[in-house]
Nucleic acid binder design. Structure first.
Lengths: 239, 239
DNA sequence: CCTCGAAAACCTGTATGACAGGTTGTTATT
DNA sequence: AATAACAACCTGTCATACAGGTTTTCGAGG
C-alpha cells in the first residue's frame, strides 16, 4: 500500500485528471508503442490508491480522445494516431459558432497548398494512382452527389497521405467532417452539369500535376480549386 | 419512460459512445453557446434510460476533450474553444513515435508562414504591441532560457491570434507543448551569446514587419526563423 | 415591502459491491 | 499431441451511498 495521504501541497485538480496524467505518463516512461497493452483497471486502482470509478473515467476519457483503445474483456492498448478528437473539437467549434466554415476553408487552403506540393515531390506510384482514381471516380459518379463528395474527401486525404507527413493527414482528415456538412451546398451552386464537370476537371488537373511531379503546377491548380470552392460557399451565403 | 428496448437494428458501439453522441447532439439541436448549461446527469440518465455510470463517463469524456466544463455542484456547461485535446493528440503521436518533431516543425512552418502574413494585414495596434512586447521580453531575459522560451511561445501564439482566425490559433497552440519539450535543445546549439541574440533579432524583425503591415517581409523573416530553428534541431540530432 | 441569512433541494465527486459477458490461459480428456 | 471444458481475469453496466459544493426557497427581522 502507498503512503501518499494527500499531502496539502497541491490544489488537486480532481482525481480523474491525476489518473489520466498517470496513464499517459506510464505510456511515456515505458516507451509503449501502438498496440502495446496498458495495466488493468485493477492494477491502476491499486497503484493510484483510488476507486475503480476514477480509473475507469480516466481510461474512458483517453479512449474518447482515441489515445487508447478499449474493448470488453481485453486490456486497454495504446492507439494508433487517430483524428477522432481533433474532428470533435472542430465540429464543436462550428456548432457553437466559435469558428466559421470559411475560416476552416482558409486553413484548409493554407495546408493543402502545401500537401499538394509535397505530394508532387514525394508521392509513390501507388499514391499517385490512388489520387487519380479518386478523381476518376468523381467523374464516373457525377450524377450522384453523395458519392462524388466521398471521393472528393478521399481525394484530399490521399494527397495529404502522399505528403508523407502524418501531421498533415491528421489535420486534413479532421476537417473532413466539416466538409461533409457543407459540401452539398457548394455543389448546388454549381447548377449546370458543365460547372460541375469543370470542378471535377480541376481535381483531375491536380492529380495530373502530382503524377508529373510538378509541385508548382499542382499548387496552382489547388489554389484555383479552393478559390472556386470558397466562392461557391460565399455565393450560397455561408458566413 | 421510454420504449426503446434496444431494437436489434444496431450493433451498439457501447452505451457511453451513444451517450456522448446524445450530448453533442443536444448541444447542436438546442443551439447552445459557450457557457450555456447542459442537462444534469440525472436528467440524462432518465432520457437515455441508462445508469448514471454511463452518463458520467460520457460527460467526463467530453470534459477531457474540453468540449464541456465540469465543476462540482454546478451543471456542466458548454466550453469555449480550447486546444487541450489537440495538444494531447500531438503529444501522444510524439511520445509513441508515430510522428517526429521535424514533421511538427514542417507543419508549423507552413501554418505560421500564413499566420504571420495575415497578422501583418489584420493586426490591431494592441495585437502588434503584444507581439512586439513578447520579442522585447525575450531580449530582456535572454540570460534565462526558460523565460525566453515562454515569451517565444507567447510570441507565436500572439501572431496566430492576430491572424483573426481561431482555427490557426488552435493549431499553433496545440503545438506549443512540443515546443516546450524541444526548445531548449535548439537554444543550446546556439552556443554563443551572439547566436542567441541573433535569433532574438529575428523575432524583432518579424514583429517590425507586422507592425509595418508588410505581409511579404513578415513571411520572409518567419521563413528564415524556421529554417534556422529546424537546422538547429537537426544539428542537435532530433530526427 | 424589502433584506438577509439559514435551511432545503439539487448537483457533482468518489467509493463500494455486484453481476453479466468477453478473453485468455490451463488443465483434463481423448 | 490435439482438443474441449474450465478457471481466472478483465471490462461493461448497474445500484446505492455519502461527502461536499451550489442554487433555490422561504421565513425572520427590519
Amino acid at each position: 500500500m502507498q503512503e501518499q495521504t494527500d499531502p496539502p501541497g497541491e490544489p488537486s485538480p480532481g482525481l480523474v485528471s491525476t489518473a489520466i496524467q498517470a496513464i499517459t505518463q506510464h505510456i511515456r516512461s515505458e516507451g509503449l508503442a501502438p498496440g502495446d497493452p496498458l495495466p488493468s483497471e485493477a492494477a491502476m486502482t491499486r497503484q493510484l490508491n483510488v476507486s475503480r470509478t476514477v480509473v475507469r473515467e480516466a481510461f474512458r476519457s483517453l479512449s474518447a480522445m482515441r489515445l487508447i483503445d478499449l474493448s470488453a474483456g481485453r486490456r486497454a492498448t495504446v492507439a494508433k494516431l487517430d483524428t477522432g478528437a481533433m474532428s470533435m473539437v472542430i465540429e464543436h467549434g462550428i456548432t457553437t459558432q466559435q469558428i466559421s466554415v470559411q475560416q476552416v476553408y482558409d486553413v484548409r487552403r493554407t495546408i493543402e497548398m502545401r500537401t499538394v506540393a509535397l505530394a508532387a515531390l514525394r508521392r509513390t506510384k501507388t499514391e499517385a494512382a490512388a489520387i487519380a482514381d479518386a478523381a476518376r471516380l468523381m467523374r464516373e459518379n457525377f450524377k450522384n452527389p453523395e458519392t462524388v463528395m466521398e471521393h472528393d474527401i478521399a481525394f484530399h486525404e490521399a494527397i495529404a497521405a502522399a505528403s508523407h507527413n502524418p501531421v498533415f493527414s491528421l489535420i486534413v482528415t479532421a476537417f473532413s467532417g466539416v466538409t461533409r456538412r457543407t459540401w452539398v451546398i457548394g455543389w448546388r451552386t454549381r447548377s449546370s452539369d458543365e460547372d460541375q464537370l469543370k470542378m471535377i476537371k480541376g481535381h483531375e488537373d491536380i492529380a495530373d500535376a502530382i503524377l508529373k511531379g510538378d509541385p508548382r503546377l499542382a499548387a496552382e491548380h489547388m489554389a484555383q480549386h479552393f478559390d472556386k470552392s470558397v466562392k461557391a460557399l460565399l455565393d450560397a451565403g455561408i458566413a
